[in-house]
Structures are given as C-alpha cells and as structure tokens.
Amino acid sequence: MDTIMALVVGTLYATALYMMLRRSIIKLVIGLILLSNAANLLIFTAAGLTTGAPPLVPDGASAPVGAVADPLAQALILTAIVISFGVLAFAVVLIHRAYEIVKVDDMDQMKDTDT
C-alpha cells in the first residue's frame, strides 16, 4: 500500500510541476492545486497508513482501543485543505483579474516588471 501511495504522490508532484512550467496561467493554477493535493497525500502517507481502524473512542472508554489510524495527520490535512482552498480561491480571482487587464493567457507576455 505504501509503495502505491508513494508512486501516486510522486506522480502528482511531477504532474503539478509540469503544469506549473507551462506558459498558460490557467495551467499554472491547475499545477498549484495538484501540488497542494500532492502535499496532503504525502502527509497522509508519511504519517503511516492504517486500514480499517478509525480513531473512535468506544462508549465508556477514555481512549481508543488497540491500534488505530493517526487522527492528527488527518487534522493536519483538513487544516491544509481549508487553507489551500482559501489561497487557491484567491489565486483564481487574481488570474481572472490579471486576464482582464493583460488580455492574454501567456506568462511570456507578463514580464514588464522583470526588467
């Protein structure tokens, strides 16, 4: 399972970087979205995969019984998803405004501030 997840994460990172290196701004944003998903999956995998054991506390007990999945990693991912949702929503608004002003979907046309 770990090997498959590692391959998935690696593929996601590679795809994301490939998309980010394209000239289109839309593809840049798609790349950023994929990248944040890749990072979330990486946390999920790195924290250890436990199948079929949700971290639930049974009635009357004060701690879960036996080996359960790590809930902290899930909390981290949830937080990261929320944050990246906010940031990427901003990025979408930004490229929309940028497209309205610059009128092209091409990074090569956007180097006025670099010289």
Binding site: L35, A38, I43, L94, D112, T113
Partner: peptide, 20 residues
C-alpha cells in the same frame, strides 16, 4: 497583477514545500 502572479506562485510553491 504581473508582479502578484509571480509573488503568489513562488510563495505558494514555498508553502507546499514547507508543508511537505
């Protein structure tokens, strides 16, 4: 806008590296 796109992209990239 042009500056912001570069700023946003590189800083988001850095955040994702940090998160990883």
């Amino acid at each position: 806008m042009e500056g912001a796109i570069k700023y946003v992209t590189l800083n988001l990239l850095s955040s994702v590296l940090f998160l990883s």
